[in-house]
């Protein structure tokens, strides 16, 4: 009985771990890793709901009557592709950010941005006062 929902709980644990990495870690690569963990948990969720006790892989054969549900498999194939696409794009952004900011730590990037904003504001105010 307890084990009947075990998959779901693992899924939720993994999901929350992924989310936690995204929230609490400042490293941009780590965040993408977190996102991967998060997405993979969803894959697990879909696939485990497709499972039928005593079923086999949904490839038709003569002597088998019970198959697992093929539809979630199809959906997750698509979702995996979406996942890798996102990861690739995210990583290329990380590369560019590293080039532009010299860092891939969120804090340091924020700091640089805020500093720039402040500097701009300061310059503006000066300009305004002069005008």
């Amino acid at each position: 009985m307890l084990m009947d929902l075990f998959n779901h709980w693992v899924v939720i644990t993994l999901m929350m771990s992924g989310l936690y990495i995204v929230i609490a870690h400042g490293n941009l690569i780590k965040k993408i890793v977190g996102l991967s963990v998060f997405q993979t948990s969803v894959f697990i969720f879909y696939i485990s709901m497709a499972k039928v006790d005593g079923g086999t892989a949904p490839i038709l054969a003569d002597d088998i009557v019970q198959y697992s549900n093929p539809l979630p498999h199809v959906l997750i194939l698509t979702a995996i592709v979406v996942g890798i696409a996102t990861t690739a794009l995210g990583l290329s952004l990380v590369v560019r950010i590293k080039e532009a900011y010299g860092s891939i730590e969120e804090e340091s990037i924020q700091q640089q941005d805020n500093q720039q904003q402040d500097n701009n504001a300061h310059a503006k105010r000066k300009q305004e006062e002069e005008a």
């Binding site: 989310l19 995204v22 929230i23 609490a24 870690h25 400042g26 965040k31 969120e106 804090e107 924020q110 941005d113 805020n114 904003q117």
Partner: peptide, 15 residues
């Protein structure tokens, strides 16, 4: 109001 928010806190809000 015009502060930048780290994506961590954005994700936190989602949760």
């Amino acid at each position: 109001l015009s502060q930048n928010y780290p994506s961590g806190s954005m994700a936190m809000w989602v949760a």
